[in-house]
Design a protein around this nucleic acid. Structure first.
Lengths: 196, 196
DNA sequence: CTCCATATTTGAACAGTGTTCAATATATGG
DNA sequence: CCATATATTGAACACTGTTCAAATATGGAG
């Protein structure tokens, strides 16, 4: 018995919604061809027709989550004060909250690796994120400083969310504040020393 | 046909060696019961008799790698200069090299999550690592500052090694230097401001 | 040396995974 | 109304971790 043909757009959206829920609740490993298929009342084959591989589906989910994150971050920047420090703090805080709201979603977004090579949609989104970082800093800081700072914040989140290390799982928010405040002041000091 | 009994110690060591190689070259997913069994010329069942689950095997590998890392770090601290900054820089540099030497090993060590709950051997090793960090800083810095700094360094390594984000994959060593130098100076500045 | 209990090893079997693709059914245009 | 194109299906294949009854090896007692 074969089901009625369904509009691809509609079907894609439905599958994506189910997969998104699965990723948010159980991570990438919760996205199995058969479970998704059953949830959408469709056969496994159909999923492959629409997304190529399961990797493709997870990537599509990640892309959405990346956009969500971007939205949250840009909103945070707008609502924050005018100083670069306030803005960067707001971004860091928002990033941490995003991760804490759903650790699975976060780890799938930043850890998931596909067999098939990544399309560059996600890379583009990442560039946009960095541009946001630059605008938040009022273009006062160099690329080097900004990406180092962001990597640092990312590390704090990583340790806070990852169930692997207990180190630094204590007060991630305080750590982020410390990193950003000390980082900005330290860069100033280094510049004064001529060490930059 | 059933093989001759082999000393458990010897067999454990051999399996561990093969699994270690597999992790180093291909990550945790390269450790499959059948492939390991074949490499050691033993049946799958024997591996389960010795390690309980495959998780147990990977954890044993991780424990070894953790010890290796600890060895490298403590050596680096000893060979570094006397100032806290020099020592922290040496640790950061060594940590990065460790990760770069085998990304798979690093990511298995810090990302791998078992179904079965972790035994606390790894946690202990982690405590030892933090103690090393404290001694390297000459006990000048608070726990908060140290773990924040280490999280920051960890984040730089994470972005440098992870194939997920392109951001900050540029000059991880420079980033680590920046983070540690600016971090230490910034903390001083914050203390002067009374903001700590 | 023989017999037996214990310890060890085995590998077929089970449930799960991603993926493919010929067959089957539906939809569409002439 | 039929022929062509399009969409859906699900059995089949090759893999995965894991279990456990059966087969064998071992070491000691008589």
């Amino acid at each position: 018995m074969v089901k009625k043909h369904r509009p691809h757009d509609e079907l894609r959206a439905e599958i994506l919604a189910v997969a998104t829920k699965a990723v948010t609740e159980g991570g990438a490993s919760a996205v199995s061809a058969r479970s998704i298929a059953q949830a959408v009342d469709v056969s496994v084959g159909t999923i492959y027709n629409l997304f190529g591989h399961l990797d493709g589906l997870v990537r599509a989910v990640n892309f959405q989550h990346m956009q969500d994150l971007y939205g949250l971050l840009s909103e945070a920047v707008q609502q924050a004060g005018d100083s670069p420090e306030d803005r960067l703090l707001a971004m860091g805080e928002t990033y941490l909250k995003f991760a804490q709201a759903s650790p699975r979603r976060w780890e799938t977004l930043f850890r998931y690796e596909a067999e098939t090579p990544t399309e560059d949609r996600l890379d583009q989104a990442e560039d946009a994120l960095f541009a946001l970082l630059q605008s938040a800093s009022g273009k006062q800081e160099s690329k080097e400083v900004l990406s180092a700072l962001w990597a640092a914040v990312h590390g704090v989140v990583e340790l806070a969310i990852g169930r692997r290390l207990t180190l630094g799982r204590d007060k991630p928010l305080d750590h982020i504040h410390l990193i950003i405040k000390a980082g900005l002041r330290g860069v100033q000091a280094l510049r004064a020393e001529g060490g930059l």
